[in-house]
């Protein structure tokens, strides 16, 4: 029930807030008019007005904006002398479906403006329609698989990690072996570490296999640093395994553990931005996503694999994941009881 309530809101394909940077080389009344149309739209916010192309490129690289609109010099003049004028629209298409939507929204506004010009400047026929040349960066063909493969890879690593860890301690409870272990002098930290390390290694092997498959089968090489992916994955796996272990220490049977694991997994997965863009979700759902480990890792792996982002770009996610991992492991060690 809870899932139905939460997920219905978050599973929307609509994009509400697109951050667009507008590079206005023309600085004429016409260009300002176009900018104001973007300002007035409820779909767009314009946090930056870079003055140079390189600046705009950097903004889109660091994910500060989703789109860049370039108004070339002579935009106003060309329009009046009946030349066809062209605008350049660059869209970040790491998330293919969201990128396509954003591009369509922006083109819609430009189209409106184009028609408005045609009607307002009556008498003088303005034949030159405004043509927006658009391009998608990072995922030029808006390829769904390119976008999905890294995300699904995260998903698999998560599911395997969470289930392996989630089933483990509770299985020992069912078998009774935990009773024998509990009377030994082994301490909690040793126990949890012992549970963690094998699955941590399995998780890395799986990730490796996944990266190789992505490259060989789907032709998606890692643009950024592979080491960086592993760095984040190593932290992420500790976090996921820790969550699994907490669930496991709290459950009495494998069914219980399975049920709780699935509950969180479904919630985490559908809210993670794997299928639908996080930006399209209501604000409360986005807030909820700050405790969703999957959304962090999906973001990071897409950035690094498709966009080639470096350490600086993903630093904040890494810090969040690390803090989260430490917290979760602490709880897991604390919750594990050496009594029955």
């Amino acid at each position: 029930m809870l899932q139905l309530l939460v997920l219905s809101y978050t599973a929307t394909f609509e994009i509400k807030k697109t951050r667009i940077a507008i590079v206005d080389f023309d600085k004429s009344s016409s260009s300002r008019e176009l900018v104001s149309l973007f300002e007035g739209s409820r779909f767009f916010t314009i946090p930056y007005y870079p003055s140079q192309m390189s600046e705009a490129e950097q903004l889109i690289d660091t994910r500060k904006v989703h789109q860049v609109l370039v108004i070339p010099e002579g935009f106003c003049r060309d329009m009046q002398v009946n030349h066809e004028v062209s605008l350049q629209l660059v869209t970040d298409a790491v998330d293919g479906s969201a990128g396509a939507l954003r591009s369509a929204y922006a083109q819609g506004i430009i189209q409106d403006y184009s028609q408005e010009i045609n009607t307002t400047i009556s008498g003088r026929r303005v034949s030159g329609p405004i043509v927006a040349t658009w391009s998608f960066w990072y995922n030029p063909e808006l390829d769904y698989t390119t976008f999905m493969v890294p995300g699904i890879l995260v998903l698999l690593v998560t599911i395997i990690g969470m289930f392996l860890a989630g089933m483990n301690v509770v299985k020992e409870k069912e078998m009774g072996t935990i009773e024998q272990i509990n009377v030994t002098p082994i301490n909690k930290i040793q126990f949890i570490t012992g549970k963690l390390v094998p699955f941590w290694i399995i998780g890395h092997l799986e990730l490796t296999l996944g990266l190789v498959l992505a490259w060989v089968v789907f032709d998606i090489p890692v643009l950024g640093s592979v080491g960086l992916i592993y760095l984040v994955a190593s932290v992420y796996l500790v976090l996921v395994l820790g969550l699994g272990l907490i669930i496991s220490t709290l459950s009495d049977t494998q069914q219980q553990s399975m049920f709780i694991s699935w509950f969180f997994l479904v919630l985490f997965i559908l809210m993670s931005g794997l299928f639908t863009p996080v930006e399209g979700m209501p604000a409360w759902a986005q807030t909820l996503n700050t405790v969703n480990p999957i959304s962090y890792f999906i973001e990071v792996i897409r950035l690094v694999m498709l966009k080639g982002s470096g350490f600086v770009d993903i630093k904040s996610q890494l810090v969040s994941l690390s803090g989260y991992a430490v917290l979760v492991i602490t709880i897991a060690v604390w919750r594990y009881r050496k009594t029955v």
Binding site: M175, G176, T177, I178, E179, Q180, V183, T184, P185, K338
Partner: peptide, 20 residues
């Protein structure tokens, strides 16, 4: 003083509790 006791006792639960 459970740590000291666990070092000193050998406990065999009623249910077979070793790794099968």
């Amino acid at each position: 003083d459970y740590a000291a006791i666990r070092q000193m006792i050998g406990y065999m639960p009623g249910k077979f509790s070793l790794y099968q």
